[in-house]
């Protein structure tokens, strides 16, 4: 059991490290790195599931009997492209946020937004 599932456990740890970075870090770029880590780890999980011991790459040749499962490979190719698309869009948002707020730290951005609301309330009371 230890050997059979060991890979999966490491992959779970990798996923969770990625997720932790996304939630716990305030820097917007670091969050995106965390997301990439999370997604890549899921890809690793899919690809490990496709492996057959003694199998080989799923490119047909005459003298080979056992191939690894090609379906997860095709799925993950798609998923990688989706991931890079998300990353690119997220990064362009970060660029615009930096230009608009002058910061890419979550706390600073929240503070500025709250500031505006507080100002509005003061003005109303005045």
């Amino acid at each position: 059991m230890l050997i059979g599932l060991f890979n999966n456990w490491i992959v779970v740890m990798l996923m969770m490290i990625g997720l932790y970075i996304v939630i716990a870090h305030g820097n917007l770029i670091k969050k995106i790195v965390g997301l990439t880590l999370f997604q890549t780890s899921v890809f690793i999980f899919y690809i490990s599931m496709a492996k057959v011991v003694g199998g080989t790459a799923p490119i047909l040749a005459d003298d080979i009997i056992q191939y690894s499962n090609p379906l997860p490979h095709a799925l993950i190719l798609t998923a990688i492209v989706v991931a890079i698309a998300t990353t690119a869009l997220a990064l362009s948002l970060v660029i615009r946020i930096k230009a608009a707020y002058g910061s890419i730290e979550e706390e600073e951005i929240q503070r500025q937004d709250n500031q505006i609301q507080a100002d509005k309330k003061e003005r109303k009371q005045a």
Binding site: L19, V22, L35, L89, L93, V94, I97, Y101
Partner: peptide, 17 residues
């Protein structure tokens, strides 16, 4: 509003998770 950018980023992170 610039808050649209921030809202979109937050949605992106939640949505991707």
């Amino acid at each position: 509003d610039r808050r649209a950018l921030w809202a979109s980023y937050q949605y992106l992170v939640m949505g991707t998770i």
